[in-house]
Nucleic acid binder design. Structure first.
Lengths: 204, 204, 204, 204
DNA sequence: CACTAAGCGAGACGGTACGTCCCGTCTTTCC
DNA sequence: GGAAAGACGGGACGTACCGTCTCGCTTAGTG
């Protein structure tokens, strides 16, 4: 999935081969229209045409920017969450993890949760989207977590004989599970339960 | 999702108004065709028409039995995994949990994994399917796990102050996570890592 | 241009490969809708979609029957004019030709004229349509005329040293010319003028 | 149809608002590209974009000069045939008509024929083009013919009781007919046949 | 044993969305 | 300030499936 917005992390202005740059304003209008429609009526009821009409835009203008609906939602999602900082300082190393888990759970309870559910689901059918989701959402966050957890190991707070990936999965996978399965609320109480007992196995 | 096959758990033979039973043979042909197509080309490439052609069946014959593609895969999936026993006896209570996790991981690595990925994804868009998946796959298994874990609590092997649902999530959510995210292999080594350290927080 | 209706000259009922026959009723609804639209707004303003909507029909239903708009008009046109008899008996051999020319001019002044203008024009761009127009309209009529003129030669009314095709062109081409060029009215007076002086060169 | 080139018969140089003349060179490049494309691939395959690319020109440059494709072909056509003289002197008044008809048939057999077929067809759908075609091609030629024929009447070679327009139609309509219908070759032999027998009715 | 009602294959049907193509206008940048 | 380049809103195209329907054929159980 190659889109304009993802390239913005680089320096170059998004330009067409020889002509003028694509309108930033239209990008936003389309993303907003798409997100509104998804949150309003669900991804299945979302059509390129509906996005185009709602954004006041020709269909080709959308196709020029994104290959399919999922890529639009992908960009919209990344745009929303990018500025997030991950691990805030807290009273202790451990507490800052709990805080981060709570922040994530809160996001999952809101619009971000709805979007990520759509993206995760769609990614099962679309390898390109799966790759994009991995590269632009999952892996960056995992990397930050791994780095943070590694400092915990260095500080002697976390055990050194556990695979860092497994550590992360142990704490965070339950949040994704509840997000998708709906077997129970993603409440702070739940987060705490997972955190408390999950950490037991990770502490030095 | 109301299908023929799921009713088979009941007593009544599925019959048409006039009393003639629907052909069991066709059910199987359709399910097989659908599963073959999903595993071969993915769910997105799957159309009712393709199933009908591959099964050598009229489209109406399918619609008479299932409301949509996902329901077919749902039935096929349940049919595959139904006979599974969950918690085998092992050298110890704990070990039988590890065994069960390994069995599940193994299934996730194979065709069952492919099917459940499809079902989980599709369920995000289809509340009916979500309900069916919960009722026919998720909850029965969770119930068995809860029951088993409760005996563990009774035996003093597991802590009594933890929510059983959270316990289950802690151990099993990571398997679902890797199944969908593909952040790493669902190997026995991974299962063991999750099991060992997850259990730390659960043991009495 | 291979259409259903043109095959009706044969005996076989128009059927699909293995299934049921296509609805005759829909054919008529589509043709009527198409003709109404052409006569109302012109051929350029005619879209497959407009025909479908006006006929209360899905677009595929049209594409299943005709390859393009022109073929529809072609069929509609042939259906209108088919029952026409060409050379009515009159007070004399010559007079029956004049009568026929007047009948044709009259048709050209009405809806048939509008349709044939469209078909002639479109045929310049579409070799298939050109072929169809030649085979289903032009040539059958020319053949009848040739046959009739030949009896005139036999009766000693028409000269025997003139190419029959040239004879026909001499009398009828002016009607087509005015139809398309609009350099003057296709009145009976005009027809008579062409007839009187054109015949001078043809009479024995 | 208001175009630059047609105005050139007038005095004023075509200038832009601010006083700089539009490039004559571009006009020719566009006309050439358009004609080449029409003769090469047919009018239907002709798009403004294709012309622009082939002429190495921006699309706006074309729209600044012509309102649509047909107007371009119209101008290109008129440019080709303008210098033609109509009625050459010959051994006799009659013979010079035959000569003129042969010249016209020859032109119809070549590129001019292809262009006029396109223009005639397109004019059926586009009243503006029809008007332009009438004013810039049909009527000027008819006027010259009428004038010439009138001298024939004055000389006592042609009958005085026939409408001059009908006379012209009688002789020339068949050429247009064959051009469009393709019912036979536009050979000199054909022209002679039409001429010989058509004239019978016109001679004094 | 013939009759009849259903299940069934086949596929036509109205409809929705797709992704592409072209139109005619507009905007930007360069010359 | 004209011109190339091409983005843009719009609209038609032809295709692919959807879920429903109707047609004859087959078949099984009843009268």
């Amino acid at each position: 999935v190659k889109t304009i917005l993802q390239d913005k992390s680089g320096k170059a202005e998004p330009r067409t081969a020889a002509g003028r740059p694509r309108s930033e304003h239209l990008d936003r209008a389309i993303l907003k229209a798409a997100v509104d429609l998804v949150l309003g009526s669900g991804f299945r009821a979302l059509s390129m045409d509906a996005i185009a009409v709602k954004a006041g835009v020709g269909r080709m203008t959308i196709y020029r920017r994104w290959p399919n609906k999922a890529a639009i939602i992908m960009d919209a999602f990344v745009l929303r969450v990018d500025p997030d900082t991950l691990f805030f300082p807290a009273s202790s190393f451990k507490e800052s993890i709990r805080l981060q888990m709570r922040t994530m759970a809160k996001a999952f309870r809101g619009k971000d949760g709805a979007l990520i559910r759509v993206l995760l689901a769609e990614a099962q059918f679309d390898p390109e989207l799966a790759k994009a989701l991995r590269e632009r959402w999952t892996m960056p966050r995992r990397k930050m977590a791994v780095d943070y957890f590694r400092t915990g190991v260095g500080q002697g707070v976390l055990r050194s004989d556990i695979d860092l990936d497994a550590m992360i999965d142990l704490l965070y996978a339950p949040l994704y599970y509840r997000l998708q399965m709906g077997t129970g609320p993603l409440s702070d109480a739940y987060v705490d339960e997972i955190f408390e007992h999950g950490m037991k196995g990770l502490e030095a």
